[in-house]
Write a protein that binds this DNA or RNA. Structure first.
Length: 289
DNA sequence: TGCCCCCTGCAG
DNA sequence: CTGCAGGGGGCA
């Protein structure tokens, strides 16, 4: 899925377009994709006529606050998309981005939320993602939200915080540590590989073996790579699209991810790809140790 | 704290 | 046909 930069891009786009709009209708095309918090009782909550008051992000989760103290929590997981189409048109001709998702609903549309001025489509090929209705005050107790560590740009994601974790998780490789959402939120497979490349660290390196300087640099590089990802509106390699249905541009600026066999942009040696923690893992054999 | 699993679809 | 895909929950 979308990692932090992709989710942040979607959140910023939605904030620009749907704030203040009222929900006119909700259509559920696949029951797996639409759930609600157990505190809401056994029957499907009705969110029609509620107003979109705020949109934010926590880790890779999207939080849409509605009126009447209700909220929608959304996780895109691997293949989720949230696409907003202004007006009632189903087709969008002449869009400048050739990768624009031209027809909504698509084959993988799971939930359709009709708003006052447009329609919000939740698409999800693999059905791992979800749209969850929850009372706003219950959000901190949500299973997904509760487990999240600090945001990567939060000042308390610092060496003093990370160092003891590296010491404690003595057997864990550094990639699995930075991808653990309870350690720091928002880093997924692409940006983990990219930040480890910038740090000159092999993904398999034991976290406990990092020096304090390396750990501090890693924090810095995680922030740098995520900032760059946001600047380029995310990485569109397979399913990710912005809220406007266009592709991100960060795939053109990656150093290692998806570059197996291509020359390292630093030393020219071919980029290696292996499997680590069950995930495809890219690195430069010569620049990272 | 690793590993299997949830799914669909596409490349090899 | 098998393996793989940007996530994370539940389970030893």
């Amino acid at each position: 899925m979308p990692e932090l930069p992709e989710v942040e891009t979607v959140v910023r786009g939605l904030a620009k377009h749907i704030l203040g709009q009222k929900i006119k209708d909700v259509k559920i095309l696949h029951p797996r994709s639409f759930v609600w918090d157990k505190s809401m009782g056994p029957t499907k909550p009705n969110i029609t006529n509620l107003t979109v008051e705020n949109i934010s992000r926590r880790g890779k989760g999207i939080i849409i606050n509605l009126s009447k103290d209700l909220s929608i929590l959304i996780h895109l997981k691997m293949t989720g998309q949230l696409i907003y189409v202004e007006g009632k048109s189903r087709l969008n001709f002449g869009h400048p981005d050739s990768n624009f998702v031209s027809q909504m609903p698509s084959r993988h549309t799971r939930v359709i939320i009709t708003l006052t001025k447009g329609i919000l489509y939740f698409n999800d090929q693999r059905l791992f993602g979800w749209v969850k209705v929850i009372s706003t005050q219950e959000i901190p107790n949500d299973k997904f939200i509760k487990n999240l560590g600090p945001e990567p740009f939060d000042t308390n994601f610092n060496l003093k915080y990370l160092w003891p974790i590296l010491k404690r998780r003595a057997k864990s490789n550094i990639k699995s540590i930075i991808m653990d959402q309870s350690v720091v939120t928002g880093v997924g497979n692409i940006y983990a590989d990219e930040s480890l490349f910038l740090s000159g660290l092999k993904p398999t390196k034991a976290g406990v073996k990092l020096t304090q300087q390396q750990a501090a640099d890693l924090i810095d590089n995680i922030q740098k790579v995520l900032t760059k990802g946001i600047k380029y509106m995310g990485t569109s390699i397979s399913h990710y699209k912005t809220d406007q249905g266009s592709s991100g541009k960060m795939q053109n600026h990656l150093n290692v991810y998806g570059r197996k066999g291509l020359p390292c942009k630093n030393c020219g040696q071919p980029i290696s790809k292996t499997k680590l923690n069950g995930r495809g893992t890219h690195y430069c054999h010569s620049c990272q140790s």
